[in-house]
Write a protein that binds this DNA or RNA. Structure first.
Lengths: 326, 326
DNA sequence: TTGTATGCGTTATCAA
DNA sequence: TTGATAACGCATACAA
């Protein structure tokens, strides 16, 4: 490995100057000296060791994100945006996939702490995450869902209650009188809010609401939905996530049902993939670009003193064919 | 931040002993002392600083992967498997998304070098990647596609020529007399091999072959395919990637064509998503688990002396409905 | 079995 | 404008 020392020797100067050159400071360097250093570095193919740099400087220029499942298009989109945003600020994004498992989630968090990331974006699998060690580590955290009161983490999310109400309200306005709600497991973040929102939107209407849960997986959603559709099936299904909606679409097709004529479907994320499902999926759309941008700002631009903050972002209903709009 | 020094003080011992305890060596520690250290560490919520550890030990316990597009299900699956495999070996996986851009790919590689990863898995966007700096850095690299001769990187891939031949041969055996081939850009890895394989399988047959390219994106594939289908359309299309096949499926649906009756479709990756597309997608299946496992072995278990190696893994044709098999 | 002291590659302070 | 040199937190050779 080529070190600053090697470069310094070849340039006939000291490691301090090499450092000044590569960091543009904090001391000025004479143009000639600078050039000699640059030349030497180029000839030697010198790359500063980020570990040593981080150890000395106290920041790693990296942030971590933990998601339940990187193959879920919504989380993949989030990771993609976050990656672009962090790269734009010369940071590296570390991605941790918890596989929907609480212990694995914690293990990733611990790993991020040990690796001294400058901040963490969390999509927890639990509605009441524990965040062991995060408090003492002093690493800022932003959760992309509501956090229980008193948490040390900031929260950046849409209003799930309102979103669910928008969705259910839309289905009601289509005239559907029996609505199914497919959410993730009972204790996953957002599930409760979804049910409250749907209840709000259907209160006083003559609408029958039925709730089912599945893992956040299109395959499991397909399974659950298949048996659902075989019995007294709802006229429309609102899914808390796109991933689940994809499974519902497939189950409907398998059952020989036409979407939206026999069954209307609504997704909960509004990922780009919705535009090319068969048929295209109407959905509540989460503001992924803002989620990413603001997460980064929250983590990287926070002053040490700032306490956790709770931010609500707007959502949108995107109408495509699966609900009957087009 | 809590350091080994803090733990040592509280346990009434030295940092060396703290280190011995946390690494189970290289020196033995008396049970009592060990317990005191463990207790102190727990009370203080001590987490070893991975940076310092890596700097001192010379390994980071991390490997990096660079893929063209993390939202592509095949790459997402790869990342997922690789992540599981690295975690099982107490390593962290760093994911770099090149966005299909050669400069961004190089920028990720450089970032990985600076961060001293123990190994790199590369899916390049170029058929002749340059790998700047990788040689001098001495970091082992395994590419998941063929590499040009003389490369310092190992290669772990299926035989794309054979795979394409299998695919085309299968379509011919269905009796389809005009076959379309949709690949990625001309100079992306594998494109040439696909064309050769298709040519081999159709040689001497009375089959018309037509080739189109699109970016490796379902959306762009949809665009390209839509105009294709509007004119003299082929009876079947073999796509080099699943991602593109998903776009073809959608384009066919939009055009009012039935798959497989009007148009047969074959994918090139065989991701899990194929099982729940409409209709389910027949595809060449890449051995993702082996790809992941062997990559890790190649990177982590290689002796310094070992030169680059070229390994060919078997592929498989998975028959579902989109080709007309079921 | 334990402690001391040095090195890992940087950054940045302080003198020069 | 530059150069020694002391951190940064940990691992480990060597001494005790």
């Amino acid at each position: 490995m080529v070190t600053a020392r090697d470069v310094a020797e070849r340039a006939g100067t000291s490691t301090a100057v090499v450092s000044y050159v590569f960091n543009n400071g904090p001391r000025p360097v004479a143009p000639k000296t600078r050039q000699r250093v640059l030349d030497a570095a180029a000839e030697l193919q010198y790359r500063p060791n980020a570990l040593a740099r981080a150890l000395s400087a106290g920041r790693t220029f990296s942030i971590g994100i933990v998601v339940p499942h990187i193959r879920n298009p919504y989380f993949a989109a989030l990771a993609e945006q976050l990656e672009a945003g962090t790269r734009a600020r010369n940071h590296l994004l570390l991605i941790g996939d918890s596989g929907g498992d609480s212990a694995q989630e914690q293990s990733h968090l611990t790993s991020f702490i040990e690796r001294q990331v400058d901040g963490i974006v969390l999509v927890s699998v639990r509605s009441q995450p524990e965040l062991v060690g995060l408090d003492t580590a002093g690493i800022p955290v932003v959760a992309l869902h509501r956090m229980p009161g008193g948490s040390r983490a900031s929260s950046l999310a849409i209003d799930s209650v309102a979103a669910a109400a928008t969705a259910a309200g839309h289905l009601v306005s289509h005239g559907y009188r029996s609505i199914g709600v497919l959410t993730g497991p009972i204790d996953s973040p957002g599930t409760e809010e979804h049910l409250i929102g749907v209840a709000e939107a259907t209160r006083g209407q003559r609408v029958k609401v039925e709730h089912r849960t599945s893992e956040i997986s299109r395959y499991h959603a397909t399974e659950v939905t298949s048996s659902w559709l075989a019995n007294e099936r709802p006229r429309a299904i609102y899914c808390a996530t796109d991933e689940q909606a994809f499974g519902v679409l497939f189950a409907a097709w398998r059952a020989g049902l036409s979407v939206p004529d026999d069954l209307a479907v609504l997704g909960g994320d509004g990922t780009a993939e919705c535009a090319v499902t068969i048929p295209p999926l109407s959905a509540i759309q989460r503001p992924v670009p803002q989620l990413a941008t603001r997460s980064i700002e929250l983590l990287l631009d926070a002053s040490p003193g700032d306490g956790p903050v709770t931010i609500t972002l707007p959502h949108e209903l995107v109408r495509r064919e699966s609900c009957g709009c087009i």
